[in-house]
Design a binder for these strands. Structure first.
Lengths: 237, 237
DNA sequence: CTCGTCATGGTACTCAAGTCCCATGACGCA
DNA sequence: TGCGTCATGGGACTTGAGTACCATGACGAG
């Protein structure tokens, strides 16, 4: 629990140094670059050695340099009451944020996948702000859905609409940014519709209530069984 | 269009050398490691220099070492007729493949995000096999959905259920693998249900047909407008 | 103004990626 | 069996990440 370097001694000087370094790195990151520690340090008129005093590695510097969005809400000034409209407004705004900062989003995603264990605890890295934004959009559903179902819906929506999905839709599926955004908006509203339909008919259905939620486990497994031996031959994706 | 190194001269010897190298790398990759070029070469009793003759960089070697799955289908032996059941079987099998090889999937995802332009054309890297598998599961819907809607549905399902979504659900949302799989299965079937509901009521509805597909553009944009100035302050996620 | 603390700068080192060049030795054709 | 081709190995070099050590010079408390 040692106090970080910047919080002891001549703290004001350190703040200025650190600020200059982060600012230099931020400028380069915003332009889509991935600056070397030395490059960022040089740009800030700081020695490489000093830079490493403030950040244990390049990754940490890039994380600190990552432009962040402070918005507490993505809803428009006069938010709609209808959950569907609210959700679409938020998702659209969210996706535009993502697309507008796509290079940085990709960098952060890549860094978060870094296998190096020593870098793992570096942290705030990808905070999951979207959960709050989507949750706010869906707040009219509080009474309609159980807390559990609501949370599941939020997570499902976010995992269907975000930088990860964008990467796959553009890089693998070959969609344009615009098409990808349209598709993710559709996904989000489709998931919402399903959740609502599910809740409105809940209790009435006796069998086939949720053909997905577990009963098919056995069958699914048997489906993979014959593939087990091939598992190390080809990539699933 | 120069012929690759291995296809000229003493090709049999080269095949053996290359095979040994890939095999050595594959073993390490399968154990979740990310071998150095030198490590893989040493393990294959090959010099580092020679290794670089076969693969231009570590990335290419890792890609070649990536275990691939040759399955043409993920459907069980006696596939259900019901599209929903078929989809769930395929998605479940697919997700188990992903989870079982998660470290490699993550590595591939990370490599695919590599910014280095010289590595970009390296190739097959993440081929998008799942599109075919899901498409096969949904083949009973050929007549029911337009080709365009069917394709959209397939892409939506795959982008909601795959390694990218798994990464987010576990790393950011904090779900366990098991929970994440359950959630993605729900997403897949929910998307299918929505698509079917949409098609069965199509043509009847005059307004509010698809509140998502474009009409809300203006509103969504205005929602983000007030945030434009904050764009470089905090991360959206 | 002085002196000791402390932030900084510089140099040198390790390690991995990647490139280049040249020697060597095995393969296979004549 | 001999010889030239050619795959391989080894060494040297560059660059970036990251670490360690020591000198210096500025700040500020007395």
């Amino acid at each position: 629990m040692s106090i970080p370097y910047e919080l002891s001694g001549r703290t004001r000087q350190k703040q200025r140094t650190r600020g200059a370094l982060v600012e230099a790195a931020r400028e380069m990151v915003t332009q889509g670059q991935t600056p070397t520690v030395d490059e960022a340090a040089t740009k800030a008129s700081i020695s490489r050695t000093t830079a490493y005093r403030y950040f244990p590695n390049q990754r940490a510097l890039l994380v600190a340099a990552h432009p962040e969005i402070g918005a507490l809400s993505l809803l428009p000034e006069k938010p709609p009451i209808d959950a569907s409209a609210r959700l679409d407004a938020v998702i659209t705004a969210f996706l535009h944020l993502i697309v507008d900062t796509e290079p940085q989003q990709r960098t952060m995603l890549r860094l978060s996948l870094d296998p190096d264990p020593s870098h793992r605890g570096d942290l705030p890295l990808r905070k999951g702000r979207a959960i709050g934004w989507i949750g706010e959009a869906l707040s009219p559903l509080r009474g309609q859905l159980t807390e559990r179902d609501l949370r599941r819906l939020i997570l499902a929506i976010r995992s269907a609409a975000g930088i990860e999905a964008l990467v796959w839709l553009t890089d693998i599926a070959g969609l344009s940014r615009k098409e990808a955004v349209q598709l993710m908006r559709w996904s989000a509203s489709a998931l919402l519709r399903s959740a609502l339909a599910e809740s409105s008919t809940a209790g009435r259905q006796i069998k086939r209530r949720r053909p997905v939620e577990g009963s098919t486990r056995r069958r699914g497994s048997s489906g993979t069984a014959k593939l087990a031996l091939n598992l190390r031959r080809r990539a699933p994706d």
